[in-house]
């Protein structure tokens, strides 16, 4: 469970005459338990792609399929982690994480068990009764990830989830996400501006072109990662020093640079 397919997806915002084309013929297939990152210039339509999978936005052309079925509306099988966390400020950390489980009508005992487990997994045990505003940005994002993960969703959708965090917290969160993905692998669609983050986290990196956005190139990272044993390194900076990592990063970087250079014409 957990495949995502974009089939010739187009998106026009506004009406047919004055509207403008944000996406054109986007095709991308993400397999079960695969981690795919999308990078691309600002405004190319990355968020729009993710929102279509989440069910917040309809398609203007083509199809978006999750588990081979077209997406109709938002649902807990596709959990979203937002850039600005989007926690419920009036609920405690525990209540935030528990909320989706209550909607799924899971019993109290089971809920307590699941929430306790995910608090532990995200190192939030001592903050269960805190309100979001009492937590740092990094902790708030951990709550948001826990809230998504605890639902045991088929796919996880993350839109620049670490974009609002400072550099150090970001690195900690990236390592944590890798650890989480090992304990509990999921299909993940991950959007980022940071090329290094994409290469470090993803199995494949999809590069989008400038408006109207389309998938320009897909880079396989997983094969290199396995071949070069990146997982043997605990720390992110050690991986980032590897020649194979630098090589991939530079390749994606160049591809993105071409996109930016085209603005001049």
């Amino acid at each position: 469970m957990g495949s995502i397919r974009f089939e010739g997806v187009g998106k026009v915002f506004g009406n047919a005459r004055t509207g403008f084309k944000a996406l054109d013929d986007v095709s991308l297939a993400i397999g079960e338990k695969e981690f795919v990152a999308i990078v691309g210039p600002s405004g190319c339509g990355k968020t729009t792609c993710l929102r279509m999978v989440a069910g917040f936005e309809g398609v203007s052309a083509g199809k978006v399929l999750v588990n081979d079925r077209p997406v109709v509306r938002p649902g807990a099988d596709r959990a979203v982690v937002f850039q600005q966390f989007a926690l419920f400020p009036w609920k405690t950390v525990r209540q935030n994480i528990e909320f989706g489980l209550r909607n799924k009508r899971i019993g109290k005992d089971q809920r307590d068990h699941l929430v306790a487990g995910s608090l532990k997994l995200m190192s939030l045990e001592s903050h269960g009764d805190a309100y979001p505003h009492q937590l740092s940005g990094g902790m708030q994002q951990r709550v948001a990830i826990a809230r998504a993960y605890v639902l045991d969703p088929d796919v996880l959708l993350m839109d620049e989830p670490f974009g609002a965090l400072d550099a150090q917290t970001r690195v900690v969160m990236q390592e944590e996400l890798v650890r989480l993905a090992r304990v509990n692998p999921r299909t993940v669609l991950f959007i980022t501006h940071a090329v290094e983050e994409a290469v470090y986290l993803a199995d494949r990196v999809a590069i989008m072109s400038r408006r109207p956005g389309t998938i320009k190139e897909i880079i396989d990272v997983k094969t290199v990662r396995l071949a070069e044993r990146w997982d043997g390194h605990e720390r992110i900076e050690d991986v980032m020093d590897l020649e194979s990592f630098v090589h991939l990063r530079t390749r994606i970087w160049k591809s993105l640079r071409e996109e930016k250079a085209e603005i001049g014409h």
Binding site: A54, G55, G75, A76, V80, F82, Q84, A86, F99, N103
Partner: peptide, 18 residues
């Protein structure tokens, strides 16, 4: 209301009354 909070609730499958 912050739009993303509403979207978060919809994504979590919140029924209308809740």
């Amino acid at each position: 209301i912050d739009k993303s909070v509403i979207e978060a609730a919809r994504m979590l499958g919140t029924p209308p009354l809740r």
